[in-house]
């Protein structure tokens, strides 16, 4: 049984190459939810490393992220390929992935859903809109939707 969102600790992993966007999105989520931890990585490679290193990470409570926010255009390994790799990996593919990008081109949207993205959101223009988006995402994914609970035993 999953604890209601407001009472349990939520871990969100954000992959975005833009420092300002990382700041804004993290800020928006943390303003909305106090029980929320947002980790950030710069590109797809770091994202995969982060997921791989989870077992060796001592500081965390041995839990994979509850949600991944993924930008499409990133250096080294972009969001499109990172999405494919995560969704092909049996240990990770249950994690909901929300594409958050500046693109609103239909090929990007189509391909993302085709490769297993759970949502596609075009980055909002203002901070107000962004906090609104954060609150909707939080409520939807952690209150409304039932997700898998893959807590790794210590």
């Amino acid at each position: 049984m999953i604890a209601p969102f407001q009472t349990r600790f939520i871990h969100i992993l954000l992959a975005d190459d833009d420092e300002d966007d990382r700041f804004l999105i993290k800020e928006a989520f943390q303003r909305q939810f106090t029980n929320c931890q947002v980790s950030t990585v710069d590109n797809g490679e770091e994202l995969l490393d982060f997921l791989n290193d989870y077992d060796q990470e001592e500081a965390f409570n041995r839990q994979l992220p509850d949600l991944i926010l993924l930008d499409l255009n990133m250096p080294r390994l972009d969001g499109r390929n990172a999405l494919k790799l995560i969704k092909q990996n049996p240990a990770w593919r249950h994690i909901p992935i929300i594409i958050m990008t500046t693109s609103d081109a239909s090929p990007d949207i189509e391909l993302s859903y085709l490769n297993g993205a759970n949502s596609f959101i075009t980055k909002p223009a203002t901070f107000q809109q962004l906090t609104h988006v954060a609150s909707v995402i939080g409520q939807y994914w952690f209150d409304v939707v039932t997700t898998c609970n893959h807590t790794v035993e210590k």
Binding site: L24, T102, A125, T126, F127, L130
Partner: peptide, 17 residues
């Protein structure tokens, strides 16, 4: 051009608040 403008709007909205 949209990209930097979005930043202006985002941070601007924080300052406006």
């Amino acid at each position: 051009l949209q990209e930097p403008l979005r930043k202006i709007q985002s941070f601007g909205s924080i300052l406006q608040q």
